[in-house]
Write a protein that binds this DNA or RNA. Sequence first.
RNA 1: GGCGCCGUACCCAAGUGGUAAGGGAGAGGUCUGCAAAACCUUUAUGCAGCGGUUCGAAUCCGCUCGGCGCCUCCA
Length: 485
Amino acid sequence: MPLTLYNTLTRRKEEFKPLTEGAVRMYVCGPTVYGHSHIGHAKSYVSFDTIVRYLRYIGYKVTYIQNITDVGHLLGETNEGEDRLIKQGKLEQKHPMQIAEEYTKSYFDDMDTLGVVRPDISPRATGHITEQIEMVKTLLEKGFAYEVNGSVYFDVSKDKEYGKLSGRSTEEVESGTRVDVKSEKRHPNDFALWKKAEPEHIMQWQSPWGMGFPGWHVECSAMSMKYLGETFDIHGGGMDNQFPHHECEIAQSECATNKPFVRYWIHNNLVTVNGQKMSKSLGNTCLLKDLSKTYSPYVIRFFILQSHYRGTLDFSESAIGGAEKGLERLLNTVREVKKGLRLAVSDSNSHKPINLDEYRSRFTDAMNDDFNTPQAIAVLFDVSREVNGLLAQGQVSKETLTSVDELFTELGGTVLGIIPQQLDENHSGEENIEHQLMQLIIDVRAEARTQKLWSLSDKIRDGLQQSGIALEDKKDGATTWKRVK
RNA sequence: GGCGCCGUACCCAAGUGGUAAGGGAGAGGUCUGCAAAACCUUUAUGCAGCGGUUCGAAUCCGCUCGGCGCCUCCA
């Protein structure tokens, strides 16, 4: 099955064919850095990260660009709204650039924790003012924009195709838009390319139209085309950005170049919390820094990838708790496989083979079908069940274990990022003091058990449980330990 | 008001024309001093409801009910 993906532009699943054979040029709208990242950011960027990882896994050379918005993203009505970073700066009594710096770092910290592979380029809007001005000049020259009192607006009426992404006609948009009587725009749906800055506005640059700052939409067009060319393969972002942000990007880009802007538009759906939309105004945002106090980043990733990127993800304690147990089940198998690899002395004569190629192809079929990660994960659980069964019967050879380990590392680790490279094993780092102490405790308890001092051995086990360490007595008499929450 | 999405077991969640994946929770069993883990068995004659198309529908069409999103800041 060839790779197919749902293209918002055509509202269909389409076979993916990049412009250049073997290479993919991809752009995803990054965060506006004025606050810490929340579970919604995680869903978005983990989803796109998994897409990038998978594209690379199947052999594409991917150039992945994700911007950092540090200027021009206004609150509320485009004309009156305050710049988010300036507002946050006033709140924290810091320069907007300091806000940008701090929250950019915070964003990357959170994403690194989640195992999100860094984009190849993370361009900042403030670092590309020249490119944005050039684009606005082009649009003015071609007659798609007009200047009013030091600000430049895109003239939506000049673009016949405006609305093709979100499926709205300009009339429809107009009827639903609050009309600002004081607006200097010719039409309510025209949008700002360049805004005149009042003298007290901290973020402003010299332009042909006087001191000002770029509109929010223009940064993505200018920066994506600078690094990926006038037409590129994939543009992604959250569904909430489909309109107006992406619609405006298409309009200004295609009018400026007279070429198709993007071939495949991918939009990921949003996170709800207990069935309700998560938003700043409702105050139910769930910050990653808080969430990761309770859950491992792998659990968060697993939780996200267990639902499809185009579906909403409902966050609740019970849902992520269930995910935590599910992932633990998968990781248990991986641990057992690694342990079996270390202990297996020679190949058993009675071992049963596993058809790993079939699992592999089921996995890629799932991923090729619009990145169906829930189904891909289900395949890993199927592998897990079969392997567990064979391990329990001792019917698995070292070669098979090696292949199974590779499969988990590749599909669960490299592609999905839900299986850690270094599993927390009691055999790793045998030189460290923690391991030595644990071994001592286990030995003492074993002695107690030999003497059938059950209350003493249970006291040790219960005590360790309280401290977040679980003991498991295996059939062969050995006792293993692992951390639990 | 306009545009769009969704409704699958106790919960989460795939499947979009060929007879219901996977995970959690529950029940029974194997193993164990007891646990835990693991394994086996089990839990939707049915996919919001009602009609229609079809040899055949959760899947396509129509209507009804219910939930949600965008249009205004958000990934």
